[in-house]
Nucleic acid binder design. Sequence first.
DNA 1: ATAGATCGTTGATCTGGATCAACTCGACGT
DNA 2: ACGTCGAGTTGATCCAGATCAACGATCTAT
Lengths: 267, 267
Amino acid sequence: MPLSSSHLTVASPKPAASCADCAVKPLALYGARGIDFSAEISKVRRECRRVAARRMILRAGEAPQDVYTVLEGWAYRFLLLPDGRRQILGYYLPGNIISLEALHMARMHMSVQALTDMMLCVFDAERFKAFVKDHPAVAAEAERACIQRTILTDNRLMDLGRRTALEKVARLVLDTYARLAHRGRVDGQTFSWPLRHEHIADTLGLTPVHVSRTFRALRQQGLLEIHGQEVTILDAAAMLLTAGLPDDYLSADGRHRHLFGKSIEPA
Amino acid sequence: MPLSSSHLTVASPKPAASCADCAVKPLALYGARGIDFSAEISKVRRECRRVAARRMILRAGEAPQDVYTVLEGWAYRFLLLPDGRRQILGYYLPGNIISLEALHMARMHMSVQALTDMMLCVFDAERFKAFVKDHPAVAAEAERACIQRTILTDNRLMDLGRRTALEKVARLVLDTYARLAHRGRVDGQTFSWPLRHEHIADTLGLTPVHVSRTFRALRQQGLLEIHGQEVTILDAAAMLLTAGLPDDYLSADGRHRHLFGKSIEPA
DNA sequence: ATAGATCGTTGATCTGGATCAACTCGACGT
DNA sequence: ACGTCGAGTTGATCCAGATCAACGATCTAT
């Protein structure tokens, strides 16, 4: 079976006719947690844009013109040093908002690039800002999204500063699994994995060579399996142990409960 | 001269009678960027609390009861692993707000500890949340604060993932200098430095031993000088070069311009 | 003053992960 | 069918920073 026909990989989604039917609405700022401003946001929406893998979406230093919601595909945000060193800061999955910082910052401090082919819902930054300003519930969701991202980044700091290569890689795999599972995008223990070793290395402060060796260790111990662009977790318990994560991390809301607190309701 | 009498170290500030006279008001959420809700926030304020160095201010997993504004002294936020590994995520200086996440999260994902003796302005978390909810301009400031912290954390990720020990230490010194200078708390090139090597190590993913060696290198090359709890930058140009920072980083708003974009006005 | 603690320093040695280099395997285009 | 190019793998070697250990300096408590 060719990879492109797998339901785990990026297909060619038909954009919803209106935001009310949007597949990622429950994950977005304007449709999460019981609120629903899909009618209003429909008017702010500019277009539905297809972006090819490897295309730059935002460049550090530029003033962002647009705000995006990811409908399909993966992107990543990163910083670059003059000598070419790169640090990947995080990944955007369907439902995530790109360029939240446009709400307050005149210029981007980081760059964003498409990892896979993507489908983006595009909003005009100015009109999106006005929309958020007029809807305090949405503004609150934006701040919540910012704080949640902070929590993810704080955990990544712990990864980079104080964890071994094996722990880091195991955590990245499990964290990705949990994020995809939350979106209904895993098939049993198997899920899409479009990251090349270079991305993983630049995310975790390693080299591609060492990422290769680390995956070999996980494979040889029977913890996981990689075929093409898909990963299968063979021994979840051992993976969790290796990653130093709690037993319930992969359960329905285990990751959310673990990272963001016991309650997923507003504090 | 005993250290405790230096104007760079923590003295015994007299709390302002009202928030309108508060020394850090221009840095706080309710008094920044032209807005001034000092009259309203006065009613939310609970007390002015003295906290001794090393005291825990917030513990990971707990539900925060208070929100704080730092009036005086340093604190730091960190994550702990069961085996004792620690990652310091960042530092709070006068004017910074502690426990922003209380606005949206039921429980803290990190711990906060006083580094020096401190003076904190204490607000009841519930009443502070209500205050923010009633004042959209303050809510916008809160989100701005969250995004700015994200930018700092993103840069720290680059430090941990892709920079050498020498670069990391030089950057931490210069960044601290710039933050203190912004608060008028530097004396020429000299400023207060209450961090022990263990803190620096846990911030930058190093060991105390290697921090010691790295400072020796900076000292031997004549870039800086350390006496007791104070650091003096002797060769700012060489420090900036070592840190890979732009020439204007230490000028009035250079750091702010560099990190947060060309304009410090709302985007 | 004295005895512990706590921290920083320095040297010796070790190691996790980097670097360098060769090779394999597909995917693609022609 | 064939060459090419990008990506992963593997082995050999190297090195930045960790670890281990000894020693001093400062501070505190008694």
